[in-house]
């Protein structure tokens, strides 16, 4: 309940309502995101989990109008609430979008260590970024700010600014990009798998830095990952996606102990942990459904042990099952809480 009270006091940053996105493929229309709705508030960190192909990246890239060219939003709205006015992202032109990208909403893509231009110095990246949005800032002012940010992500600022991207390690590039994304004080930052492909100690380091930064600045963070342990570390709210749909959304403590969607429960039970002494991990049987030729009813039904005739016929809608906890399952009351291992 506490979180819900606290939430009201903070400004709303994003509201996505009934967003549906399709891809044109040679086999037909692929329904990548269907009827997704969520809100994100200042200082909140929202973590999207789900298997590959569940639509989490498509959903989040559409929030900055950066979805792939063959993706078409077919319905719904995305509203971003800036300091002084609100924006309807889906109705904005590329030119208008370019103004708010990075300045208001920044996005770090998957494998974004490769995002740097290999032939210019790191400091030119910072200067370029700042000057394309804020006219008339001196190089010195920008570099001073960059230095501060680079120190926040615990890098040797002068060395990094005067290096070419290839002179930095993967973890350093990742942190430099993190600093770059804060350069224009964005209100919303979207991270797409920023810690995959990093070593354990580097990953831990980046998680710690992200948490620090979140306390220092008041941004709203959307975080995409398939790694549940990273979600457990960083999330306030966890959103589970399956077959293009948001199937569950709940506060982090709640979802890990008391998931109300069989898919979330299945994911949690499939993650190996260190703390348990002995374990019997269960994988979710079956595979993800075809999003071109979609079956009727609940998309998860063929893999679900709670499924009944109703599930095959009628698609469940999100219903409230607790404070800030919604799930799309006909039989959510039958799903047992997670038994703490060890």
């Amino acid at each position: 309940m506490q979180t819900s009270v606290a939430k009201q006091e903070r400004p709303l940053r994003l509201r996505v309502s009934n967003l549906s996105i399709t891809y044109k493929t040679h086999r037909g229309i692929l329904h990548a995101v269907r009827n997704a709705s969520f809100e994100a508030w200042e200082k909140e960190s929202l973590v999207f989990i789900g298997e590959s192909g569940c639509g989490k990246t498509t959903l989040c890239t559409s929030l900055v109008g950066m979805q792939p060219v063959n993706a078409t939003p077919i319905g719904g709205t995305v509203k971003y609430f800036g300091e002084d006015r609100e924006y309807s992202i889906l109705e904005m032109s590329d030119k208008q979008l370019a103004k708010i990208r990075w300045k208001d909403i920044a996005m770090m893509f998957q494998a974004s260590q490769n995002a740097f231009n290999p032939v210019i110095l790191m400091k030119e990246h910072f200067i370029d970024t700042a000057q394309s949005h804020l006219v008339g800032q001196s190089r010195k002012a920008i570099l001073d700010k960059s230095r501060k940010l680079l120190e926040l992500v615990r890098l040797d600022a002068d060395r990094v600014l005067n290096s070419y991207p290839h002179e930095l390690s993967g973890g350093m590039k990742q942190r430099a990009l993190l600093a770059l994304s804060f350069l224009l004080d964005p209100k919303v930052i979207i991270f797409d798998e920023p810690t995959t492909a990093l070593d354990v100690l580097t990953q831990r380091y980046i998680i710690d830095i992200l948490r620090d930064l979140r306390d220092k600045f008041s941004f709203c963070m959307l975080f995409i990952t398939h790694d549940l342990s990273v979600a457990a570390e960083l999330a306030d709210t966890v959103v589970t996606m399956y077959a293009g749909q948001i199937v569950e959304k709940a506060p982090v403590g709640e979802i890990f102990s008391n998931p109300k969607h069989p898919y979330t429960a299945g994911l949690i039970q499939a993650v190996p942990t260190l703390s348990s002494t002995h374990e019997d991990l269960k994988s979710i049987p079956g595979s993800t459904p075809d999003l071109v030729d979609m079956a009727a009813g609940c998309q998860f039904a063929p893999r679900c042990k709670f499924a009944t005739a109703l599930c095959l016929k009628e698609e469940p809608q999100l219903v409230e099952v607790g404070p800030n906890h919604v799930t799309a399952c006909h039989h959510h009351e039958y799903i047992p809480p997670i038994v703490k291992k060890g």
């Binding site: 100690l201 998680i207 979600a231 890990f256």
Partner: peptide, 13 residues
């Protein structure tokens, strides 16, 4: 290494 590893349980981790 062991202490840096995040775990899939918000309380534990």
């Amino acid at each position: 290494l062991l202490s840096a590893l995040p775990e899939a349980d918000p309380q534990v981790t």
